[in-house]
Simulated scan of single mutants.
Amino acid sequence: MALIPPFFLDCVVAIGIIKPDGNKHWIGTGFLFGKFVKQKEGNEKEYKVFLVSNKHVLKNHASVILRFNPQDDQAATDYPASLKDKDGKDLWTGHPNDNVDIGVIGINAQKLKDEGMKFGIFQSDDMAFTIDKLKEIGTTEGDFVYVLGFPMGLVTSDRQFVISRNGTIGRIRDLFEKRSTDFIVDAFVFPGNSGGPVILKPEMISIGGTKSNSNAALIGVVKSYIPYQDTAVSQQTGRPRIIFEDNSGLSLVEPVDYIFETIEEDEKRKSQPPTTAIANAGGSA
């Protein structure tokens, strides 16, 4: 029994950097998203493939590494991905709104396929629910979700296996009413989860007067957790001395619509199809 389509797990990618001492440090999560281009012969479709993550994961780096598992059980392969050209200009594109934390860069999916990597893509036309689609199916607070990613950089030494955490939609009606640009899920996320996909859990049963949803779908991108702050006050002076910050267990999520908008911005920037971020493999982990 599976509530998440198995290939959804293969859409998710660990993002890391090589430190000056040569060691790998895993800094975030990304996933492969396919923008529908055209219908080909039969049931085959053509997609333009992008890596999606957060701006704050991609910025300030000239390059990162992306980890993929081979189709067999061999050790994972790390691919260098250039984020800047020789002139220092960003090869990736961020959403034009500074408050929207989404960045994209084109990916050479054919190269991954030719080299026997195991991967999937979230197809834009039938695996991603926009705000209007979420309204249509009656999405509301309390609906169950899955958060996929690599919290705390928990990537095994020789393979890439994503970690799934469950949660619920904490608040979304303010997004529907355009009073907010993001929504809240009740799910713990940590550094390393940033840029990971949020998946709506399929539910065959619903209460009377509401709709059921039988499809798992991408509904957003993890941005950050919402911190809880507590202040220690001096008993002698009555003034605050130390502020403690904890993870509240509530997390901010960017809706799928902003992925489409960021890809549109990327295509405006470039007269040619997006340049690939994938270079030659850096070898097995």
Rank of each mutant, 00 (worst) to 15 (best):
Q110C: 01
E44W: 00
V104G: 03
Q39N: 05
Q160D: 11
K133L: 05
D21W: 12
D266R: 06
G103L: 03
G167W: 08
P70K: 02
I219Y: 12
T168S: 13
I243W: 03
G170L: 11
K133Q: 10
G28A: 08
V104F: 04
F190D: 06
G238S: 07
N43R: 01
I65Y: 14
N99R: 03
P70T: 00
E254N: 12
M117W: 07
P80D: 13
I17A: 11
A76T: 06
H61I: 12
A285L: 02
I107N: 06
F119D: 02
K270S: 14
T275D: 15
I219Q: 04
F183T: 05
A216D: 14
D90T: 10
D230H: 13
L32Y: 05
K270N: 15
I18R: 15
V52K: 04
D78Q: 09
F31K: 00
S271F: 05
L148D: 05
R239S: 07
T29D: 01
I17Y: 11
N280W: 02
D126W: 07
I65Q: 13
I107S: 04
L154K: 10
N97C: 02
I4K: 03
Q272L: 08
V162S: 01
E141I: 07
I219A: 07
G120D: 02
A277I: 07
G103H: 05
V155A: 02
R241P: 00
G195L: 03
K270F: 07
G283K: 07
E203C: 02
V198P: 10
S271V: 03
D10I: 00
V155E: 01
P96F: 04
K48A: 09
D87C: 06
F31T: 03
G34W: 04
N97E: 11
K211N: 14
D87W: 11
S251G: 05
V233W: 08
G282F: 06
F161T: 14
P227A: 15
E41T: 04
K178N: 14
I131W: 00
F244A: 11
L51V: 10
K89Y: 14
T237F: 06
R269S: 14
D266N: 13
S82V: 13
L58T: 05
A14I: 11
Q39H: 01
V253A: 08
L32Q: 04
K24V: 14
L58N: 09
R171D: 12
I102Q: 04
L218P: 12
K40Q: 06
G238Q: 05
A2G: 00
G238I: 01
W92M: 11
F122H: 09
V185E: 06
P191T: 03
T77P: 01
G88W: 13
L134Y: 00
H25T: 12
S224F: 05
V198E: 02
M152L: 15
T210N: 15
D114M: 05
K55H: 14
F183Q: 08
N280K: 08
I121P: 10
H95Q: 04
T231L: 14
D174K: 00
D78S: 12
S206R: 13
F33C: 02
V253R: 08
F68I: 01
